[in-house]
């Protein structure tokens, strides 16, 4: 147990820590939602991850994603791996550049207990929701987080006992309503908090 983990245990006790580290978290996408959500989960003490994204970091990502100027051009999963290990060097972190499709959506997170949808496109959100809506895994998705202001519009809806949906459901990213760090982080933080409370309290 490294010094960071000792401090996390200090915050919420050994029992909660032991509960938490059993969970492996799958994250579908390492953009605005996925990169920030992953950082929050690492800071919360989660240690086992599988993170999938095929894309590379661009300057346009830096307004909201957990990457840095000198990481532009790197694969997102590789840049994110480096950043997460700077928070906790002892993570069990698997990264994949395989594109998630309707065919591999279930298999790719086979050994994960929690799956977090962190895609950009509505069609991909739909695809993953269809794959996981009846799953025994905890599934957390997000929809509607564009623009700025009135951040309380982002709600958490419990669609099923193990299927949560975060967002305002209507604010689509567009030229008039771009994605910005504060709202994207609110959504990512809500996704992370659902996972944390599930792991500790079982609800």
């Amino acid at each position: 147990m490294n010094s960071f983990t000792k401090e996390v245990v200090g915050y919420f006790g050994n029992e909660n820590y032991r509960r938490l580290i059993k969970f492996k978290v799958g994250i579908a996408g390492a953009g605005g939602l996925g990169s920030n959500c992953a950082a929050l989960l690492v800071r919360s003490g989660f240690q086992k991850f599988r993170i999938c994204d095929f894309d590379q970091v661009s300057y346009a990502n830096l307004n909201r994603q957990f990457f840095f100027y000198d990481q532009v051009g790197m694969y997102k999963v590789e840049a994110l791996e480096a950043n997460l290990l700077r928070i906790n060097p002892e993570l069990e972190l698997e990264i994949s550049r395989e594109k998630i499709t309707g065919e591999n959506a279930v298999g790719i997170f086979d050994d994960c207990d929690i799956v977090i949808e962190a895609f950009d496109k509505a069609e991909d959100k739909k695809m993953l929701a269809e794959a996981y809506i009846g799953s025994p895994k905890l599934y957390i998705s997000a929809s509607g987080l564009a623009g700025w202001g009135k951040s309380d519009r982002l709600q958490t809806r419990k669609i099923h006992p193990k299927f949560f949906l975060v967002g305002d459901m209507v604010s689509e990213v567009s030229q008039a309503q771009p994605p910005f760090a504060p709202m994207v982080n609110v959504a990512a933080a809500k996704e992370a908090d659902i996972a944390l409370s599930w792991a500790i309290d079982g609800k």
Binding site: L33, G34, D120, K125, A129, L145, M169, P179
Partner: peptide, 9 residues
Amino acid sequence: VVLSFVGGG
């Protein structure tokens, strides 16, 4: 149950 998704993430 109707889940209607919008883009952004």
